[in-house]
């Protein structure tokens, strides 16, 4: 259970592997708790109604794919936007700095749900008014829901990660940059060889936490009619009139997703060499 500690303290990396598992089982009260949890699980499986599950598995799979696609694409593109956002806030000319700070403040200061509805209903209605847009190739995409969800998620990730990158760029020790300058490197070389890699390195530990937060934001796309995992579960609930079973299943899936993500990201993180 302590595996998931990274969520709160992204900088700290507890040891991973068999040592931890044996430590979990070494204490008798944990064995009892594990047994209680197992009995609870068995009771949930035996006493509740899971007859709907096999029939919905293909749909659930599609929903899961949509959730993962949203997560991966928004993290990737969001990070690409976050880099310049962080950079200009540290070393940019004032109009850029001002714009980037404003963007981060606005996105971080309003709920993602509201942003999503603003894009989908607000911009969607505006786009629909222009015959030029309706006639263009882009309309095929603009009348679907997922581009709006993708844009909202990407901008949100960019704003939060941009703030992290700002700190990371600002936190690179001056001496290292001065040393590079003393070697006669050009500004671009300093950026490419020292400033950028060092900043990404510093930002890496917090990235895990941000990506988990992003995973937790993805179900909001269901409110604008994108059929992700959450939307499929909503369909199940409406079709079967079951309250708890689909929701519990959803909780279990997200727990597994978070755990897999954390373990994968920690593996990646451990491959990046750090002093100490």
């Amino acid at each position: 259970m302590a595996e998931l500690d990274t969520l709160s303290s992204p900088g700290r990396r507890p040891a991973l592997g068999p040592i931890r598992l044996s430590a979990v089982l070494a204490q008798p009260h944990r064995i009892v708790m594990l047994l209680v949890a197992l009995v609870g699980l068995v009771l949930i499986i035996r006493l509740m109604d899971w007859a709907w599950l096999p029939g919905y598995l293909p749909k659930l799979g599609e929903g899961l794919m949509m959730t993962l696609a949203m997560l991966v694409s928004s993290v990737f593109f969001g990070f690409l936007i976050a880099l310049p956002l962080g950079l200009v806030q540290v070393g940019g000319a004032w109009p850029f700095r001002w714009l980037a700070t404003g963007f981060c403040t606005i996105i971080r200061g309003t709920p993602l749900l509201l942003q999503m509805w603003l894009f989908y209903y607000g911009l969607g209605a505006v786009f629909a008014q222009f015959p030029e847009i309706r006639g263009s190739w882009a309309w095929d995409y603009l009348r679907q829901a997922w581009p709006y969800g993708f844009v909202a998620l990407t901008l949100s990730f960019a704003a939060y990660e941009g703030e992290v990158m700002r700190g990371a760029f600002a936190g690179v020790p001056r001496g290292e940059l001065e040393a590079a300058e003393a070697f006669g490197m050009s500004r671009w070389q300093i950026f490419r060889r020292i400033w950028f890699p060092r900043a990404v390195h510093r930002a890496l530990p917090t990235l895990t936490g941000e990506i988990i937060l992003q995973l937790k934001s993805t179900p909001l796309v269901a409110t604008i009619a994108v059929t992700d995992l959450y939307a499929v579960i909503t369909q199940v609930r409406q079709a079967t009139y079951l309250t708890y079973e689909p929701l519990l299943f959803l909780v279990a899936v997200y727990l597994c997703l978070s755990a897999v993500l954390i373990l994968t990201l920690r593996w990646v993180e451990n491959r990046v060499p750090t002093e100490r």
Partner: peptide, 18 residues
């Protein structure tokens, strides 16, 4: 301690909406 650990872990791993 362990129960609280489970509480915080579950809350932080599952979307708020859910």
């Amino acid at each position: 301690r362990d129960l609280l650990e489970v509480y915080t872990m579950v809350i932080r791993a599952v979307p708020e909406l859910v």
